Amino acid sequence: MTEPGAPLKAFVAETTSPMGTWVRVSVTASGVCNADIATAAATGPGASFPVTPGHEVAGVIAELGGQVEGWAVGDRVAVGWFGGSCGHCAFCRAGDVVHCPERKVPGLSYPGGWAQSITVPADALARIPYGLDLSEAAPFGCAGVTTFNAVRGAGTRVGGRVAVFGIGGLGHLAVQFAAKLGYETIAIARGGDREELARGLGAHHYIDGNAQTPGAALKELGGADLIVYTASSTAPVDELLTGLNTHGQLTLIGVDAGSLTVPVARLVVNGHTITGHLTGSAHETEEAMEFAVTTGVRPMIERMPLEQAGEAVARLRSGAPRFRIVLDTARGK
């Protein structure tokens, strides 16, 4: 992007050697995420040009800064929405690097991964395990680690019931993680055409939001201990809470510009928790990928050439892709 609202276009950028604790990664695959739409529009305050979006990156280390330790040229690495932190604030010292007030995000803090090369802080790197293809690894930097953490971090009782609302780019991963972590898994989406897919991903039950009221249907199944909400519209949340068990939790990872209106009495009486979840650290991204290799969890991806990044964004805006688009730097036009 060379100016606000302009079309994405390919251009040749100068490649410089990384300094200090930064590394340069030769990019093989880079995911296209809903969060990239705003980055690609480049209309926000303080945008500096040119803008290169992309925060789901997988590739191989090409160069190391002089102060980098623990990494080597040729290492297979992923870089996600977490693109580095200050390392000294209270959040960083507590291990919560994602909420560091000085955290960096590829595409916003520095040129992102929709390129053949990206230079990032070494603390943003996640090691990709063998057994995971680089194109499959790319979405783990955002969608994968986000859904993995949302499911495993909720503290749901062993053998509990987890519902996933929305079976798209985030939801199809959340269903897999919930099932592989041993929870009775319920997939909720609109239309009966997604039931076979949802069950193939590991869902034990399927609720068609067009045919049933989701919260009431959840209650009939015994209620959910955790609802992972991946849809972009928050309008259904109020009704959905009627299917949440006492002391249950609803975790929002899909968001829009709206607000929630929840009856306070119901919240208090049932001891419900409603929380938001952002993403995960580089270490947690490694854990998500290692778990995926062990259990067979994989993102459903559609590959497109890097040169078609603008088309990929247009398709994402239209809602055309069902799951994850990955830009491939090796594919030509």
Rank of each mutant, 00 (worst) to 15 (best):
P129S: 12
L181M: 15
V158D: 14
G107P: 06
A124T: 03
R190F: 10
I167N: 01
I188W: 02
T146E: 04
R152K: 15
L173Q: 05
K104N: 07
V162K: 04
G171C: 11
G141V: 06
R93L: 15
E102Q: 15
V164K: 03
V175K: 09
G144A: 10
D133H: 11
I188C: 07
K180A: 15
P139R: 08
L181S: 12
K104T: 01
Q176F: 12
A150I: 05
D193E: 15
F177A: 06
T185R: 07
V151K: 05
A174N: 08
S117T: 04
A124C: 11
S109A: 15
V98S: 02
F177R: 02
R152M: 14
R194Y: 08
L181K: 05
G166T: 09
V175E: 01
G182L: 14
T119M: 13
G112C: 07
Q176D: 10
E184S: 14
I118V: 15
G141Q: 09
I118W: 02
G153R: 13
T119W: 00
K104F: 06
A94P: 02
Q116Y: 08
E184K: 14
A143T: 11
Y110C: 05
C142A: 06
C100Q: 03
F148C: 06
E184P: 00
Y110F: 15
L173C: 09
G168I: 03
T119K: 02
L170Q: 04
G112H: 05
L125Y: 01
A187L: 11
D123Q: 11
G131Q: 10
R157H: 12
R190P: 06
A154G: 10
Y110L: 08
A124V: 10
D133K: 09
G169Q: 11
G159F: 12
L108T: 11
A124N: 02
E136N: 04
P101W: 12
I188S: 01
T119L: 06
I186W: 02
A189K: 03
C142H: 02
G153H: 07
E136K: 13
G112T: 02
S117M: 12
G160N: 13
G168E: 01
P111D: 14
T147A: 08
G159M: 12
I186H: 01
G95L: 07
S135G: 14
T119H: 00
V164A: 06
R152Q: 15
G191W: 12
A150W: 06
S117E: 14
A143L: 09
I128R: 05
A94G: 13
E195T: 05
